[in-house]
Nucleic acid binder design. Structure first.
Lengths: 334, 334
DNA sequence: GAGATATATGCAAACGTTTGCATATCGTAA
DNA sequence: TTACGATATGCAAACGTTTGCATATATCTC
């Protein structure tokens, strides 16, 4: 088993007491320490390789230096990039991050939140499942700092939320396709039951009205299902000139249909998506899309949470981030 | 700030003392508790929503219920899949996982290890940087349980290691390409300075000798660099019939070169790689490759670490996992 | 030279657990 | 009746920190 050096060990070697060592190591102001003693303590601590125990100091009300983050799909780089950006911010402030995959299953989410509370994390960032409002209640009850990202807590008010202008994403995409002359457009979306997310389709339709037709298909939140629905859609509507993906994870599978069928993207078929295409790197395969700037989402959420931790809770904050249109080569003007 | 219910609160409501409550909640044997009291305590705990504080109980020698894992590249799904599989195992045993990205930078690695020790994690899983042997010394000194995955701790002996048969990967790949008739093969590899990893090339060469030519190019550990080196290699050797990628992250960028040049994979050019192609999902784009079974790597590492935690350290364990040849459609017989 | 103030350090209580030890009430066998 | 094992519970010490309070000397100020 592991044997750690304690404040007492350091104190003994430095010939002083634990209290004094604590003061030196945290170099708090408001306490006089002679340079001579300070040096002795510092030396002893470094010779013994003293490593503070966060768990113990958090008992005295200090920060646990731990943050929990819940995402619904580890496999989806949209979410892992949010984590990556958030971690970057937290690490700069000395916090560690517990990343948990809920697999979009409410029961897992509930169990995870319970575990995180057991860990006495200083705060939670969460992209909730459909039962998020219910499952986060325990956390809210104990006054845990929490920031919601991307999806809302349906049926709740007054929480901190960093998200994307989903209607705007759809609308901008529709406007762009329309501008390029497309009038028969396949939309591949996700029946999530989350109104805010489904407004992507509304935006697309609003921007395309009245003279364009939108053929909607709904896939599961997976590449495989995106593949299958794309096949169905193309079979049903061979005259469609463009495909618009509402979710990158579905596009991830969907684009393989075009390759399979020998349809050249940007020539035989126009393709557009919301999010970042993780499968198309460097140089070519330059997708036209609506970037959600997930790194920025992650950073904003992290900074907001840090603020809450420092200052105690503030009035509910709602940050809505616009997407940015990236003009690539996957959409052809017709 | 958050206000948690303590054992004392539960004890008061149940009309007993903290000690008794602790016994009930952990239902340890060797202590008599009347059914009546037990029910009262359980009721009080659930009514108050008591949540145990891991930090406090770990002070008394209990498990911290926390594991740290260090990977060199969050962006690389090879590593995130290891994490995913490991997390699955840990969660089943009530442990949380702190996932940290070293970005392959030794200084970050060092800082991360220090933070994890501060958290008093119960164990560490690590894919080390080049300075791993040095950076993990603090952890080894305090007797922290540790399992190394994928890359070795160069210059050290006697640690627990779960890894891939790298020479075998290269050899099997070479044998397959040879069997398909390829005699002029481009190898895209990584000059890591880690002998074990570089043996992938040795394996490939050994399997191809004596009548095949291997043209080696070395890229950074990134898609972008894989793209650039592939361009160079194809320019230098237009007569090469196959490209073998030693690392999936390089192939991830590299395959875009073929698309860019209009080379049909599996027809105009044969492509093979070690690892899983995360960009090619479902149906078509079926790559011939050497699967490293990273999920299994992650599971094995997790299970090994759990064993160490339960039983205290055992004799050094070395698990070497063979890769499995997946025959797809990206290599043509000539 | 007397009080006040600045400098320097130790002591011990608390945080929320776990657990060994002590205590108290039984029923029952000698 | 005594004594003893079984049943049932409380008490308090520890774990490694942080911090308010007490103490002790040195340095001013008038």
């Amino acid at each position: 088993m592991s044997r750690f050096v304690t404040l007492k060990d350091v104190a003994e070697r430095a010939g002083t007491t634990v209290g004094t060592v604590s003061y030196v190591l945290n170099n708090k102001k408001g306490r006089y320490i002679s340079d001579e003693l300070r040096q002795r303590v510092l030396l002893a601590a470094s010779e013994l390789n003293y490593i503070k125990c966060n768990g113990a100091s958090s008992l005295k009300g200090m920060d646990r230096k731990l943050i929990g983050i819940l995402i619904p799909q580890f496999e989806n780089q949209f979410f892992t990039r949010i984590c990556l950006a958030a971690e970057e911010v937290f690490v700069q402030h000395g916090y560690d991050l517990i990343i948990c995959d809920t697999f979009d299953e409410p029961e897992r989410e509930k169990a995870i939140i319970h575990r995180l509370l057991s860990q006495r994390v200083d705060g939670i960032i969460i992209t909730p499942t459909v039962d998020g409002a219910e499952n986060t209640r325990i956390a809210r009850d104990v006054g845990m700092n929490m920031v919601v990202v991307d999806r809302p807590l349906e049926g709740l008010e007054g929480y901190h939320w960093v998200t994307t202008n989903n209607y705007g994403c759809g609308f901008e995409g529709g406007r762009y396709l329309r501008g390029c002359g497309h009038r028969k457009i396949i939309y591949i979306g996700w029946k999530s039951g989350i109104a805010d997310l489904e407004s992507r389709e509304t935006g697309l339709r609003d921007a395309s009205a009245p003279d364009a037709e939108i053929y909607s298909y709904y896939a599961e939140f997976s590449p495989e299902s995106g593949f299958a629905e794309t096949e169905k859609a193309l079979d049903d509507h061979p005259d469609a000139t463009a495909v618009f993906y509402g979710f990158n994870i579905q596009a991830k599978g969907g684009v393989n249909v075009f390759r399979k069928r020998g349809l050249r993207i940007g020539e035989d078929i126009s393709v557009m998506l919301i999010g970042s295409p993780e499968w198309a790197y460097t140089g070519s395969n330059d997708f036209s899309r609506l970037d959600m700037e997930e790194l920025e989402l992650g950073r904003k959420a992290a900074r907001l949470l840090l603020d809450l931790i420092k200052k105690g809770s503030a009035e509910p904050n709602r940050v809505i981030q616009d997407c940015v249109l990236i003009e690539g080569s996957s959409v052809r003007k017709i």
